[in-house]
Amino acid sequence: MPSSTLNIVIFSGAGLSTESGILTFRDSNGLWEQHRIEDVASPEGWRRDPALVLEFYAKRYHAQAACLPNPAHHAIARLAARHSVLNITQNIDTLLERAGCSGVWHLHGRIDRQKCEEHHSLGFPGDAGMFTCDFLSAIERPIALGDQCPKCGGQLRPDIVWFGEPVDMREEELGKWVRKADIFIGVGTSAQVYPAAGLLSIFRNTPERFFVDPHPNYDVLDGFTVRTGSASAELPPLIDSLIAR
């Protein structure tokens, strides 16, 4: 990379992929595809009706596979080819990867991966003897009820972080980026779902901070340069201006 390389953190949410056809998590009546969130995105829902959960994510798997990266994804890939970029996303789709990005940190998991229902990432401190499996792999088709973990025989489930499950915030890696980041960009996120929303505060001392969203929450954006509009309309010109420096 050139000597003028910038260290840039990009934190993205559902608004990054909306224009590619990926549905946002909540619609106007609090349902997603006419399902209650707690029925298809919680450990309780999984225990109650795993077949329903797997059917739901099978539809998500096929839907995202049919979508293409939009100009915002491609702009981020261009930036990553020129500067040092840490991509942190709340999205479970792989549109950033398909645009050419590598090493994307998916806070909430990926729709194209599976893990054992006893995977160690699901455990909290104090869950002694529980969640001890380490099986995690890519998938080429949706998971079916009865698909067993090859290591322990447990049911396989999507590699998605559901409500009430721990999020891997990678404190050590975050600390390194907090110290070296030159620019922080938030895009397409409500910045209201924790712990991920805390990133805006964690990077509050970054020299330059930008935020792109059609409906920005100004209450949490003190010190940000805000560009009001969609990701595909507002992010590419912002990124092109950074590349041109």
Rank of each mutant, 00 (worst) to 15 (best):
M1W: 11
P2V: 11
S3C: 12
L6A: 07
N7H: 14
I8T: 02
F11W: 02
G13L: 03
T18W: 05
T18G: 04
E19V: 02
G21F: 03
N29K: 13
L31V: 08
E33R: 13
H35W: 03
I37E: 07
E38S: 13
A41S: 11
S42L: 09
E44V: 13
G45R: 00
R48S: 15
A51M: 13
L54E: 03
R60E: 13
Y61P: 11
H62L: 15
A63S: 14
Q64P: 08
N70R: 13
A72S: 14
A72E: 10
H74G: 05
A75V: 08
A77R: 03
A77H: 10
R78Q: 15
H83Y: 04
S84E: 11
S84P: 09
V85S: 07
V85F: 01
L86R: 05
L86I: 03
N87I: 05
T89A: 02
Q90S: 06
N91P: 10
N91H: 12
T94E: 10
L95S: 08
L96Q: 06
R98M: 01
G103E: 02
W105D: 00
H106T: 08
I111V: 11
D112N: 12
D112W: 06
R113Q: 02
E117R: 15
S121I: 09
G123I: 09
G126H: 03
D127W: 02
A128K: 11
G129C: 05
C133D: 06
C133N: 04
S137F: 06
E140R: 15
I143H: 06
A144S: 15
D147K: 12
Q148K: 15
C149Q: 01
K151D: 11
G154W: 04
Q155T: 07
I160F: 12
V161I: 11
W162S: 01
W162F: 04
W162R: 02
F163S: 05
G164C: 14
E165T: 10
D168K: 14
E171N: 12
K176R: 13
R179Q: 08
K180S: 12
K180F: 05
A181N: 09
A181Q: 01
A181R: 00
D182T: 03
I183Y: 02
I183T: 04
I185N: 01
V187M: 04
T189W: 00
T189C: 00
A191H: 02
A191R: 07
V193Q: 05
P195R: 01
A196L: 02
A197S: 13
L200M: 09
L200S: 03
I202V: 15
F203T: 04
R204T: 07
R204F: 03
T206H: 00
P207A: 01
R209M: 12
D213N: 15
P214V: 10
N217A: 05
N217Y: 10
Y218A: 06
D219N: 15
V220S: 09
L221V: 09
G223N: 09
G223A: 01
T225S: 13
L235E: 07
P237I: 00
D240H: 12
D240R: 14
D240W: 07
L242V: 14
I243M: 06
I243E: 01
A244G: 15
A244M: 14
